[in-house]
């Protein structure tokens, strides 16, 4: 049976006269990898912040993991994971300290943290680096560690904001393998990216233009609908019509 974990109806956010997110509606199912695409300034970040419980909508409704984005933002935060390229881990803490810190924030017990620490370090093959400062790690390792830390508390949904920017092509693919494994475990993945080949790895993709969702479907159906050979072409067709200047 399909289980809806994100349900969004006419979600809108205004800043003065400016409508950043304009009557957006969609649903995301459990275990789905949902690609959230759009040009810079299309309103992706604003929408994502509302779904993470960090920004109260101007109108419309949405539930994330069953919790209301107006009234239950603290519950939402406890049930999601979040990672972005810009901010993920504390550079001046070691690998172990970062894991312990995040696990503690999410309220995991000492015993659980201990067990998870061992298995996580083994899985990432980073046991030898456990006492290294995060800033000394290569970017690709940091990103993989950051993702694993973001799902340590087994959230229902993980939000990934451009997680692979600047990462080398081999590590970028290893990162996506982690995403697939998380999805297989039933974690819903909500991801933004500027790499159009990564759009193909999503079960479904939405494309935002000027605050609205202009297209939402599987990559294959989108390519058929827009008579395009690749997701890159689909994106260009839609985003070229944008009136807003990029942010």
């Amino acid at each position: 049976m399909k289980e809806t974990v994100i349900k969004v109806e006419n979600l809108t956010k205004k800043f003065g006269d400016f409508i950043a997110t304009n009557q957006v509606s969609f649903e995301v199912e459990k275990g789905e990898i949902f690609g959230f695409l759009g040009a810079n300034g299309a309103g992706k970040t604003t929408a994502m912040r509302m779904l993470c419980g960090l920004s109260i909508p101007s109108s419309g409704s949405a539930t994330v993991a069953g919790f209301d984005v107006y009234r239950q933002t603290e519950h939402i935060k406890q049930n999601i994971g979040y990672m972005s390229q810009k901010f993920s881990l504390y550079e001046d803490l070691t690998v172990k300290e970062n894991i312990r810190f995040y696990a503690g924030i999410y309220g995991l017990s000492k015993q659980v943290i201990k067990d998870k620490m061992t298995s996580l370090l083994e899985q990432l093959q980073m046991t030898a680096e456990e006492n290294s400062l995060v800033k000394s790690l290569p970017l690709g390792w940091k990103q993989k560690l950051a993702f694993s830390v973001a799902i340590l508390h087994e959230p229902k949904i993980v939000f990934l904001d451009e997680p692979t920017g600047g990462v080398d092509p081999v590590t970028r693919r290893e990162f996506w393998n982690l995403i697939y494994e998380a999805a297989e475990k039933g974690i819903t993945v909500f991801v933004t990216t500027h790499y159009m080949d990564e759009a193909e790895y999503c079960n479904r993709v939405s494309i935002m233009v000027d605050g609205k969702i202009e297209a939402l479907d599987t990559p294959r159906n989108l390519k058929t609908t827009f008579n395009a050979g690749s997701m890159d072409e689909v994106f260009l067709q839609l985003a070229r019509g944008a009136k807003r200047t990029a942010d």
């Binding site: 759009g38 040009a39 810079n40 451009e162 920017g165 600047g166 500027h194 159009m196 890159d232 994106f235 260009l236 985003a239 070229r240 944008a242 990029a246």
Partner: peptide
């Protein structure tokens, strides 16, 4: 072009 969307990159 880092962090810039596909249209602006083109």
């Amino acid at each position: 072009t880092t962090g810039v969307d596909a249209v602006s990159r083109k």
